[in-house]
Structures are given as structure tokens and as C-alpha cells.
Design a protein around this nucleic acid. Structure first.
Lengths: 114, 114
DNA sequence: TTGACACATAAGCAATCCCTTATATATTTC
DNA sequence: GAAATATATAAGGGATTGCTTATGTGTCAA
């Protein structure tokens, strides 16, 4: 089974707005390829290629239903992205706290110097 | 003030592993450009170009200190990424719960049929 | 002031990305 | 079986990416 380089592909997969749009759509439930393409103004092969990339990144799974391909979201690989960005969340919270403290100090000083 | 297309640039900026590495480094504190380049085997201009992209995306800020440029992390734009991926977090939690329930059911059925 | 240093920008280039049109494959319908 | 439908893959091309070497700019040190 050919396993794609997972880490790389998740960050790259979501770099494209069309692919993020597809994932957003799939959050609301599984859908055939044709419906996934509807919101985007591009040819059918173009969409099919985006779906291939999402498949390779293991972000979606497919099942056949007649001549349709039903796509379903597989969010697990996004965990890595979540983990990565979460490490920054604490940082920006710290920063907001620091800003708050700074403003407090300023307010105190203003009061005192008045 | 020239404002870059924020949304696009954050997702694109973090698509590159070198740039993620730079941001990770900056989490530990501000650093001059030279130190940021050390871990990556590439020329000085190559690094400088990555730093430019991060600046344009407003993910870092710079200040001059003699002939050095001191870079500092600015995590705010990552909030958008955090918001985006967070909407999936609940989904994969649901999925794990569903899997758990399924396994429970299976276990019950196995027990009953034994 | 002259040279070394830290960095940015310019120019060029191969690889990759994202689209297109053309074609193949499988399924359903007539 | 033949035509229509749903999708995938192939081939090609323009734009973008990420590097390289060459060069510019500002600062420090002798």
C-alpha cells in the first residue's frame, strides 16, 4: 500500500481554498463528487484532481454508489494541524494577557501622575 | 498602508516546512535572522525570502539592532487557522464517540450471542 | 575610510501547482 | 447493444514556488 508523506500533505492540502471549501462542505455530511463541485467554478476534471489530493492526504474516503462516488470527510489527519496551531494559542493568550497588564500599568501611572 | 490578503496568506505561509520551523523557533523568543537560518540547510537569501513571506503575512515583526534584524513572532494571524481547524475538532470527537458506541454495541451483541 | 559583516533584493531557473481539453472506464437507461 | 451519465486519468501549458548566484544597502570595527 503506497503511503503518502502524511505530515507534509495535510498542510499542503489545506493551502488551497477550493480544497478547504470541499472539506467545509463535507462537514455537513457525505456527498457525491458532482455536488462537491457545484459551488466552484471550474471544470469537472479540476475538481476531480482536488479530490485526488484530498484522498491521498487521507482527508476524505470514497465509496461507490452506482456510477456516483460518495465522498466522506475523514478529519483525523487534521489533528496534526490542530496540535501544531494549539501550541501557538497559549502564546497569543499570553500576549493578550501581557497587553492587558501593560494597559493596566499605564492606567495606574496615568492616574498617579495626574 | 498596503494590506496583504490575510486569509490566503496564512494558510499558504504555513504550507512550507521551513517557514513552520522558523515560527516554531520564534515561539521560544525573538531571534536575529542569522540564528533563524541556522537549522536549515539553505543559502542566506533563501531564508531571507522565507522571512519576507512571513512578514507579508504579518506572522512576524522585525526590529533593527545594529546590523542585525531581530524577528519576533506575531501569532495573531494564526487565530484564523485555529478557528478553522477547531470546527473539525468537534467532528473528530464525534467520530471517536461514535466508534466507541459502535464497539460497545458490538461487545454487547457478542456477549448476548454467546 | 576601508573592509568585514548582516541582511535584503534582483535575476534566473527547475520543479510544482492548478487549470484546461481530450479521452478512458464503469454504470445506468433506453 | 447503444447512448447518456458520473467520474477518473492523461497530456499540455501558464503561473507560482523555492531555490540558486550576484549584487545592493546599511552598520560596525580597525
Amino acid at each position: 500500500m503506497p503511503r503518502a508523506a502524511a505530515t507534509e500533505s495535510v498542510f499542503q492540502s489545506i493551502a488551497d481554498p477550493t480544497r478547504r471549501g470541499i472539506l467545509d462542505l463535507l462537514k455537513e455530511g457525505e456527498r457525491p463528487a458532482s455536488e462537491l463541485g457545484a459551488p466552484f467554478q471550474m471544470s469537472q476534471p479540476a475538481l476531480s484532481q482536488h479530490l485526488r489530493i484530498l484522498r491521498d492526504a487521507n482527508l476524505v474516503s470514497v465509496r461507490a454508489k452506482g456510477r456516483q462516488r460518495i465522498y466522506r470527510l475523514n478529519p483525523e489527519p487534521l489533528q496534526e494541524l490542530y496540535d501544531w496551531v494549539t501550541h501557538y494559542q497559549e502564546f497569543w493568550h499570553d500576549k493578550l494577557r501581557a497587553l492587558g497588564a501593560h494597559l493596566d500599568t499605564k492606567a495606574r501611572n496615568n492616574k498617579r501622575s495626574r
